[in-house]
Write a protein that binds this DNA or RNA. Structure first.
Lengths: 224, 224
DNA sequence: CAATTACAATAGTAATACTATCATAAACGG
DNA sequence: CCGTTTATGATAGTATTACTATTGTAATTG
């Protein structure tokens, strides 16, 4: 029953969806709808029908569906950042901290009782299939200027800093981490849909375990 | 003077665009238009206006814009495959072959006189920003069944085989290669638009050189 | 010369991505 | 308690997108 909520970038929304029931409904239902039909087929009309509201009402919260997607994704990375802080707490060596942070990223997410209106597992699936679409656009520079990618950059930077501490001479901590983050997001998708692109397979739990080991090996083989 | 052309998967098109002037025009102009405005804003109407034809005529070649994008991307990976075969020719050790293949992937593309109606540099930019969108969809399994991702998988597999030859005991050749391929596509984008995610910067030539060295190091540190 | 093909021209439809206006009920402030 | 803001619903309307269908005609082929 912790009463925390994330304060996200105000450019993301017209009205904060966390402060009203309709807003929370929009978040909850957009997660399940995007998870179900994919972002391409997702429309505010379909969402409005699902929550028995109107398109116009949804538009009062989000300028367009792209901003809504970025909102969800930013929420996810802010959540990861928060979980990483917990996981890395009290660990003394940068190696341990790095491993703990990495583990947070590469594990199957469980529902977090702190956030009642977010289905974290569905959101993780959305991040895997849709995250890249938030920045692979022509407006990336404008969106970036508005700070829309800060949560992801924060997570990456936190891990890159630990790498730097493990080996201050290593020249590519950011490149290495963003490479690993990309892979962490894609390999689970490959395992499911394009298995010839990966050697990872088996049950979900096993998938994440193997993926974690793969990523850990890459990192430590590179920086030692 | 073209004496070669790639025979692409027939599921990609309704009528082969390589066999007519309008078809070639569609390819040429869709590359420049997608490069210019991005795939999201690209429509058959805009393309038709650009080539002074009609929407209906474009639809005779491609079922929809997604298939057209996959066509372009498949052409690119088929081209990469072809170039890799050349580059790896006559090299005897798997290490050398791996390096040569990787170099083909990670270098700034030059216009190839073999293919008059393709702007290879624009196409490379399209691959960097749009490739992931071809498979991060709800129809991925259907598209995969139709063989739409074969060219990419072929390229990945070719490199993974060399890894296996370098070190037959290495357990993750496919995972490693698809990780590197992802990174190769994204890091150049990061360098330009999200520089805090990478340590790579500087002039284009330098960017590719640094990126190549980074990827080579990851690979050989992992498999040795 | 007949028949196919390639393509332009035109029309039309359902869905998408919005914008605008108005009514009303709840909440809130003095 | 009354007036005002706020939140939402209801409704309408627009330009664009993503197609499908039909027809006419010039060029190509058999």
């Amino acid at each position: 029953m912790t009463i925390i909520s994330f304060r996200l970038n105000e450019n993301l929304f017209l009205k904060d969806p966390q402060n009203s029931e309709l807003g929370q409904n929009i978040i909850r239902s957009s997660i399940s709808l995007i998870d179900e039909i994919g972002f391409e087929h997702f429309t505010f009309k379909k969402l409005a029908d699902k929550i028995e509201s109107t398109e116009a009402s949804v538009y009062r919260y989000f300028e367009n569906k792209h901003r809504l997607l970025v909102y969800l994704i930013d929420w996810y990375w802010t959540w990861m950042d928060y979980k990483m802080d917990f996981a890395m707490q009290n660990l003394l060596t940068p190696e341990d901290r790095l491993r703990a942070g990495l583990k947070v990223i590469i594990e199957e997410k469980k529902p977090d009782p702190n956030f009642a209106f977010v289905d974290e597992q569905a959101l993780q699936r959305i991040v895997m299939s849709e995250f890249d679409k938030t920045y692979l656009t022509k407006q990336v520079d404008l969106d970036n200027k508005e700070g829309l990618f800060i949560p992801y950059k924060t997570v990456c930077n936190k891990l890159a800093c630990e790498i730097k501490k493990v080996n201050p001479a290593y020249q590519h901590p950011h490149t290495l981490i963003s490479t690993i983050m990309l892979s962490a997001n894609h390999q689970v998708f490959y395992a499911k849909h394009l298995p010839s692109l990966t050697d990872i397979n088996g049950e979900k739990q096993v998938t994440y375990q193997k993926l974690y080991e793969f990523c850990e090996a890459i990192i430590f083989n590179s920086i030692k």
